[in-house]
Design a protein around this nucleic acid. Structure first.
Lengths: 360, 360
DNA sequence: CTGAAAGCGCTAACAG
DNA sequence: CTGTTAGCGCTTTCAG
């Protein structure tokens, strides 16, 4: 009883060959019913569990998929989002007997002082994973390029248009901001600002586009100074502070909007802070909307009207897509997940509704 | 060039034995300097990278540590916390060439319809991991018990006093609430409520104790109805909604506190919401403090005075402890990480300061 | 449907 | 310090 039983022990006990046990284990070929019963009994009696290590070795694959995260972003956004995606991935991958491994790619690269392609090649050759999920694509990312180049099965959460043949799983960003902006026009707003990062990333231009579409549909022609653009490095532009700065800046000049569509919830909070500081009362004076519906969106005051996305489901979609790729199936290059509008108390009918109605 | 070079190829090319290459690879024995040069050159020329799979198999260990999460809690708390811990673990484990694997333990158990000990035994026997980090200990957890029973190297984030010999890494909960409560008394508050979950978990009683200690030191004798206790299941009691309910309930009766110490930031927000709804102005009428200093704590309005804990560092501590255990070193059973007070705008001097001063 | 046999690529005694 | 020799436990041809 001292040592782990091996496939060999099971075979001996069932008086069959190890090969038969193996076949039963992974259903790689049919096994006679009575042989099967014998083997199963032997496994039970011995308490046999196959060694993952030996299986992986023999198969030459680890049944592991790497989740590449960028662990620098300390943003709330970041970490809650990442773990939720990871759980979603796990939901579907666990069933397929894959497991997920978190890798802080950029940090690892820096640490080992390797270039992206060196690093990628090395990890790939080590058979550390069979596929990868990329969670925070930045503007242009050497690591992603290297992964694509190396033809490693990969799925990206979000968009990364710079690379051919990468499978993208994203939420409907255009539709989301369109919806939430339409909600604003529905309750009478006509002068609606957009607070977002510069258009470097697809997600940024997508969300801006949804906003524009909604305005256009309502026959509103956006004024150039309705665009409040944050400044900073890749991650900074999405932050509370950047949003806060942008709005403080904008509020210095005379401004004329009655609502603001923020790129995300965190930035919406930055706007809220800035407006509150300048003595506004919300949502009476200005309506504000966000995007993401992070858990805190309903807990803050005023609670945020925002666009809800099911992040865990996003992870599940990504997992399914990757699984399909690994099994050699054809997969859509782009999956767009629907989002929904959540109306809370950061939006209210505009007070100049009547004025507007009179205008024409 | 079609196939991956193996240790054998390197050995041939360098005209040494595979064993020598192996020794160089993991520094398991001294190698002559010129041999080393030869081997290194051969490795470079071939672009050799050792196969993780083969290494793990030969060693009988996966160099993987499992991070057990409970993926049911959709709480903000939960996921941001978990990923941050994971990143901290990664920081130190990556250096030691370990990698981390996220496992949704309870879900996996349920899925495979196994008992905790069956599940644990099976995973352990499969050599899927060398050690485990447990992230959300609940009141009494069969999975943890099974892990301890199986003598698997394990570290728990938080406290789990029910199990002998488990290594615990926690923050200074007592000190934290003591500090933040003392801040309240410092600015004149004498009637301070505590909003928390029932005392089932150590973390709950610890934080309550810190509160009590601070009061005692200020010569305040807490009134029984200063204790606002949330109700619900294991995870619910820590939630925004539970906190909101508890405060709404309490606010129905005449109450007499000027400040409330909430168990955590999320619950503090629940209290804020309830108080705002009942027409209070914060922090003018009531001061509120939280615990955790989650990223959103500074973004909400009013921004929360709270206790900051470095979660990533918590993960790093856990990683170091586990590494030490795996290396057979003696490790302290309990590590307490210090926390710090962050004063923001949810607290203000009490208005009845003068009244209080006159009382004696 | 089943068995025999040959590895997968590396590590780890054991000699020398 | 280095080479030889066995495996680690499973999968997978290839025969039968």
């Amino acid at each position: 009883m001292g040592t782990r039983p091996t496939i060999h022990d099971v075979a001996m006990r069932a008086k069959v060959s190890p090969a038969t046990v193996s076949r039963l284990l992974n259903g790689s070929a049919r096994v006679g019913p009575e042989t099967e019963a014998l083997v199963r009994q032997a496994m039970d009696e011995l308490g046999y569990v196959p060694s993952r290590l030996a299986q992986s070795f023999a198969r030459g694959s680890s049944r592991t998929i790497a989740v590449l995260v960028d662990g620098e972003g300390e943003s709330l956004q970041g970490n809650a989002f990442l773990m939720t995606v990871a759980l979603g991935l796990n939901d579907v991958l666990a069933d397929a007997d894959y497991s997920i491994r978190i890798i802080n790619g950029h940090q690892a690269m820096r640490q080992s002082r390797q270039t992206a392609s060196e690093w990628t090649r090395e990890r790939w050759m080590r058979h550390e994973f069979d596929g990868v999920v990329i969670t925070n694509p930045t503007t242009t990312d050497t690591l992603i390029e290297a992964i694509v180049q190396a033809e490693i099965p990969a799925v990206v959460i979000g968009r990364y248009p710079h690379a051919e043949g990468l499978i993208e799983i994203d939420v409907d960003n255009v539709g989301g901001t369109r919806m939430v902006t339409a909600h604003l026009t529905d309750i009478g707003h006509r002068r609606i600002a957009f607070l977002g990062p510069p258009d470097r990333l697809t997600v940024a231009s997508d969300r801006r586009q949804g906003y524009l579409e909604a305005l256009t549909r309502s026959g509103i022609w956006p004024d150039p100074d309705w665009f409040l653009e944050t400044e900073g490095t890749d991650l900074e532009v999405f932050s509370f502070d950047a949003a806060h700065r942008a709005v403080v800046m904008a509020a210095k000049k005379p401004w004329s909007w009655s609502a603001v569509v923020a790129f995300n919830d965190e930035m919406a909070l930055g706007a809220v802070r800035a407006l509150l500081e300048s003595g506004m009362e919300l949502p009476r004076d200005v309506s504000i909307v966000g995007f993401d519906d992070l858990p805190f969106a309903r807990m803050v005051n005023p609670s945020l009207t925002t666009v809800h996305q099911d992040i865990r489901q996003l992870g599940q979609h990504a997992g399914r897509a990757l699984l399909a790729v690994l099994r050699g199936r054809k997969v859509a290059d782009l999956t767009i997940q629907t989002v929904s509008l959540v109306i809370r108390s950061s939006t209210a009918p505009t007070r100049d509704l009547t004025t507007v109605d009179l205008e024409p």
